[in-house]
């Protein structure tokens, strides 16, 4: 197989596997989100991150399974059976050459162009955000005692990658008690310590192949889980969950918030969920769900291992029919 055709087939296999994963996640999304809501926030973050990464994981699995026998033959110097099955001149083989498959190049090229376009758009957004973060630090004052940047306004946030910075609005410092500020800062420090921004970024990249609505719902749920996880850490730090809830409500009632016109239902829904979780925490263990998911994944991997050759040949036949005709 020519190198270009080989890579084109790998790209197409990865895309097909990812699409299959995306379909599974999309069809189960509503049910899974509901079930996960009862888990503790930190566990929920792990579950949701895994869920949004699932399409790419299935894409990778598709490539590995389809090329499994070839890798096995190549690794152990065995005679491969590429010429003994499938259509002539089309087989997933790393040794036996085959003719070029222009259809595979075209399809893989289109997919890569689409992915590149998305990546460029995301990079531009990241660069803009980085510049905005630099601007905020430039106009801010470093408060060494709190290890935060004091900036005009009423924000309390952590921003910046790879090293996140905490920004605290001067309005908050002037108007709120030290106890409220302690709760706010404990929450923001928890974000920095847990590397939530990096996780968010990875999740957003991983979720890029999901349909828009599913992606938005899952990422919103992930954001809520992260906020609740940091609320829980802040509550443990201050030893007063109700103080954290009170701080949330006090900050939410500030009038001079920029872009206050852009109210969204999701944000008020998150606020309510966070306050309720701090006032009436009712989480259940995710151990049984973890055991069920582990069994399912192990079963899937074993099936792939047992039927590796059959899957390999079936995939070859499907690709040959679609790409060569």
């Amino acid at each position: 197989m020519s190198t270009v055709s080989l890579w084109s087939v790998i790209v197409l296999l990865f895309a097909a596997g990812s699409m299959a994963g995306a379909i599974v996640v999309t069809s189960l999304e509503t049910m899974l989100r509901r079930s996960l809501r009862s888990f503790a926030p930190a566990a929920r973050v792990r579950w949701l991150t895994t869920l949004v990464a699932m399409p790419y994981a299935t894409g990778l699995l598709a490539v590995v399974v389809a090329f499994g026998p070839c890798l096995h033959h190549l690794a152990f110097g065995l005679e491969d059976g590429c010429l003994a099955h499938g259509r002539p001149n089309f087989f997933f083989c790393l040794r036996t050459p085959m003719h070029d498959v222009p259809m595979a190049w075209a399809a893989a090229g289109l997919l890569l162009a689409f992915a590149l376009g998305r990546a460029v758009a995301s990079t531009v957004r990241l660069v803009r955000a980085h510049r905005a973060c630099c601007m905020l630090r430039r106009v801010g004052r470093w408060d060494a005692s709190r290890s935060v940047w004091l900036v005009p306004g009423s924000v309390a946030m952590v921003a910046g990658l790879p090293s996140p910075h905490i920004f605290l609005g001067e309005v908050l410092v002037q108007h709120f008690s030290q106890r409220v500020l302690d709760a706010v800062l404990a929450h923001e420090r928890a974000h920095a310590a847990r590397r939530d921004l990096a996780t968010k970024l990875i999740a957003r990249v991983a979720a890029s192949c999901l349909p828009p609505r599913t992606r938005a719902e899952l990422l919103s749920e992930l954001d809520l889980a992260m906020e609740q996880a940091c609320d829980a850490i802040a509550a443990a730090d201050t030893r007063d969950p109700l103080l954290v809830a009170r701080s949330l409500l006090e900050l939410a009632s500030i009038d001079d918030r920029p872009h206050a016109w852009a109210a969204t239902f999701a944000s008020s829904e998150h606020l309510e969920a966070r306050v309720r979780a701090l006032c009436e925490p009712r989480w259940r263990s995710s151990r049984s769900a973890f055991a069920a998911a582990s069994t399912l994944v192990t079963g899937l991997l074993l099936t792939c291992l047992v039927f590796d050759l059959k899957i390999h040949e079936a995939t070859e036949t499907i690709f040959a029919t679609l790409l060569v005709g």
């Binding site: 995301s122 957004r125 990241l126 803009r128 955000a129 980085h130 905005a132 973060c133 905020l136 924000v155 309390a156 946030m157 952590v158 921003a159 910046g160 990658l161 706010v184 929450h187 923001e188 974000h191 939530d196 921004l197 996780t199 968010k200 970024l201 999740a203 957003r204 954001d223 992260m226 906020e227 940091c230 701080s247 949330l248 900050l251 939410a252 009632s253 500030i254 009038d255 918030r257 920029p258 872009h259 206050a260 016109w261 852009a262 109210a263 969204t264 944000s267 008020s268 998150h270 606020l271």
Partner: peptide, 20 residues
């Protein structure tokens, strides 16, 4: 930064766009 919030580069204590 709020515009870039979708990229995951920011986590605000209370969502910046949240209206009281």
């Amino acid at each position: 930064l709020r515009g870039a919030q979708a990229s995951g580069v920011l986590a605000a204590f209370v969502e910046i766009a949240a209206k009281a």
